[in-house]
Write a protein that binds this DNA or RNA. Structure first.
Lengths: 312, 312
DNA sequence: ATAGCCGTTGCCGAAACGGCATCAACCTGT
DNA sequence: ACAGGTTGATGCCGTTTCGGCAACGGCTAT
C-alpha cells in the first residue's frame, strides 16, 4: 500500500535520521537514490529543505514546514490503513506512547494488560522520558499519545485531558511522620529528604515552596529516578515526594505511606496532561485506547481526591 | 510542486467527476492513464474503490475512506504551499465559500470588499446553496468555509461559531404593521404573507409555529428566493419573514421595516453556523478571513440584540 | 439496429527510478 | 600536516513505470 511518492518517505527518513546515507540504510536503497529524491523535492518546492552541514543535514524553515505536511500525510495514511483493516475485522495496529515515569508503576501496566486482554492484535511501544522530551517526541511524530506534566504545550499539540493529583510525601511505614494524615513541608524537612534532581518536574514543583522557607534544608539524597526514590523511602532512608500514582503496589503491601502535602492550608497540585498531535485524526484503535486512558486517570483522580479531601 | 503520486490526484478527479474519461479530460491526460492508476490503487489497497456502473463510477465504502485520506492530503498540501508562499511575502491564495442566501445582501459583500482592500492577492469563490448542500459541499472538499443554518452537522465538520439572529417580519414602510416594535405571528397572518418554500430553512422555523395556530392562514405567495421575497415585501405585496441580516441596504433606504417576531413573549431564533472541515488545518490566509467572518457576524449579532432587546 | 458513451487492454516510446562507482569537501585522530 | 573515514553529489546504465494511441466489449437511449 505505497501509493505515495517515494520522495515523501525518503524525506521523512532523512529528517528522522539526519543523514542521507543513514536514511538509505534504513530504507534499503542506495544513498544516491535518496539524494536525488531530496534534490528533486527541493527543486519542486523551489527552496532548499536541508542545510548541508559537514556531519549530516538540518531542516531549514521551509523544510520544517514540509516535515509537518509529510507527518500529517503519513499519520493520516496510517489511520486510513487501520480504517480499512478494521472494516474486514482485522482490528490490529500499534500504539506508541511517550510518558513520564510516574505512570510506569501501576497506571500504564494495568491499563495495557487489560487492553491487551481484549484486543490482542494491538501492540504497544512505550518510551519513558522527561516531560519536555515527551512533548517533543509527540511533535516529531515519534509517539501517538503523550503523558507529561502539564507544561505550556506548543500549538501543534492538543491537550486531550488535564488531571490533577496531590503531591505528597512518601515515607516508610515505620517513619515518625507515618501516623499523620497530612504533612507540611517544614515537618518533612526536619527529617532526611530525598530530593528530585532538576530534570524531574517534581523539582520545579517543590523548589519555589522550599525557597520560601527561612531555613535551608540540609542536603540528603538527590536522584533523578522516581522508582529509585520510592525504593529508598521504603527502606527508611528518608522522605520522598511524588504523587500517589507511582506507589500503588508498595502502598498495597503497606510498606509505604502517602501523606498529602499541606502548603499553608492548601494542597500542592501536580498537573498531568494527556497530549496528542493536533493536526491529526487518530486511528480507531488508538482513539479507543486513549479514551480508556483518560477514563482511568480521571477515575484515579476522583478516587484520590475522595481519599484525601481538600479540607483536611 | 507535484511531489505526490499521480494516483492521488487522479483518484481525486475521478471521485469529483464520477467518471474516468471526464477526469481524464479535466486532467489533460489519456483516459487509459487514469484507468490504470485507479486499477493500481485498487490492487495496492486490496479492495475495489469504485463500483463500475454503466454510467460512471460510484465510491465503495473503502473508496470513501480513501477519499477522506486523499482530501486530507490535498488540503494539507494547499496549506503547506501557502505557508511557503507567505514566507517569501507572497500572501496569495484562493478561498472558496459556500453559504446560504441570507449572507449575500450585505455581510459577505462588505466583508470581502474590505478584505480584498487589504489583501489583493486573495481570490474568492462564492457558491450560494441550501443549508444541507452547504454542509455537503464542505464534506466533499469543494468549499473551505461554509455558512449555513445550524442543523445537526456531520462529525467530519467542525462548527467554528454559532450565532443567533432574531427572525422577524419584513414589511414595507407604508404597511399597517410598520409602526409596531414587534409583531406576533397572528398579527402578521391577518395580512397577505410571503411564505418560504420548504427548501428554505425559514420554512422549517416557521412551520411548527404556524401549525400551532388554530386558523390556517390563507395562501398568499410562496417563493424560494430570499432576495425575491424581500423585494416583494418592499413593494407592499405582503409580509415576508427573515433575519435582519438580509435587509441591510433596503432598510437603510427606509423602504423596509424589520419587526422582530414575538412568539408568546419569546423571540424566534434563527441559528447560523460557520463550518469548516474538521480534519484540516486551514491556510493562514483562510484562517485570517475566517476570523474576520466570525468577528463580523458576532458584531452583527451583538448589534441586533442590542437594537431589539429580548424584553420587548 | 445504430450511435454514443463507458472502462479496459495491448502496444510502444518516453520519462523516472535505482544501483554502482566515483568525486570533492569536510571532520577527526595521530 | 597528513591519512583515513564520512558526508552528499554526479555520471552512467539497466530496469521499472508512466502515458498516449488505438481498439475492444458492455451498456443505454434513440
Amino acid at each position: 500500500m505505497r501509493f505515495h511518492s517515494p520522495a515523501i518517505q525518503y524525506f521523512h527518513a532523512v529528517r528522522r535520521t539526519g543523514s542521507i546515507r543513514a536514511a538509505a540504510r534504513v530504507l534499503n536503497v542506495a544513498s544516491s537514490a535518496v539524494s536525488r529524491q531530496i534534490l528533486k523535492l527541493e527543486q519542486e518546492v523551489g527552496s532548499p529543505l536541508f542545510e548541508r552541514n559537514a556531519r549530516g543535514l538540518t531542516l531549514t524553515t521551509v523544510g520544517e514546514m514540509l516535515a509537518r505536511h509529510v507527518m500529517n500525510v503519513l499519520q493520516d495514511l496510517d489511520r486510513f490503513r487501520s480504517d480499512v483493516a478494521s472494516l474486514s475485522g482485522n482490528w490490529r495496529g500499534s500504539i506508541s506512547i511517550a510518558c513520564i515515569e510516574s505512570l510506569t508503576e501501576s497506571v500504564l501496566p494495568e491499563l495495557i494488560a487489560s487492553h491487551r486482554g481484549r484486543a490482542r492484535r494491538v501492540s504497544f511501544t512505550l518510551e519513558v522520558k522527561g516531560s519536555a522530551d515527551v512533548l517533543e517526541a509527540l511533535s516529531r511524530g515519534e509517539a501517538d499519545i503523550g503523558i507529561a506534566m502539564a507544561l505550556r504545550h506548543p500549538p501543534d499539540l492538543r491537550q486531550v485531558a488535564l488531571k490533577r493529583f496531590r503531591l505528597g510525601a512518601v515515607v516508610a511505614r515505620e517513619h515518625p511522620l507515618a501516623r499523620r494524615k497530612t504533612v507540611t513541608l517544614e515537618q518533612c524537612l526536619a527529617f532526611p529528604v530525598i530530593n528530585a534532581l532538576p530534570e524531574l518536574s517534581i523539582y520545579h514543583l517543590l523548589q519555589p515552596l522550599i525557597a520560601q522557607l527561612s531555613e535551608t534544608p540540609e542536603p540528603a539524597i538527590q536522584a533523578n529516578s522516581i522508582d529509585l526514590m520510592r525504593e529508598l523511602a521504603a527502606r527508611g532512608v528518608g522522605v520522598a515526594f511524588q504523587t500517589q500514582l507511582g506507589i500503588g503496589r508498595l502502598s498495597r503491601d503497606s510498606q509505604l505511606v502517602f501523606l498529602p502535602l499541606d502548603n499553608a492550608g492548601s494542597p500542592v497540585w501536580s498537573d498531568l496532561g494527556i497530549y496528542v498531535r493536533a493536526e491529526r485524526t487518530l486511528p480507531a484503535y488508538t482513539e479507543s485506547f486513549l479514551q480508556e486512558l483518560v477514563r482511568e486517570l480521571g477515575e484515579r483522580e476522583r478516587r484520590e481526591n475522595a481519599a484525601y479531601p481538600q479540607t483536611s
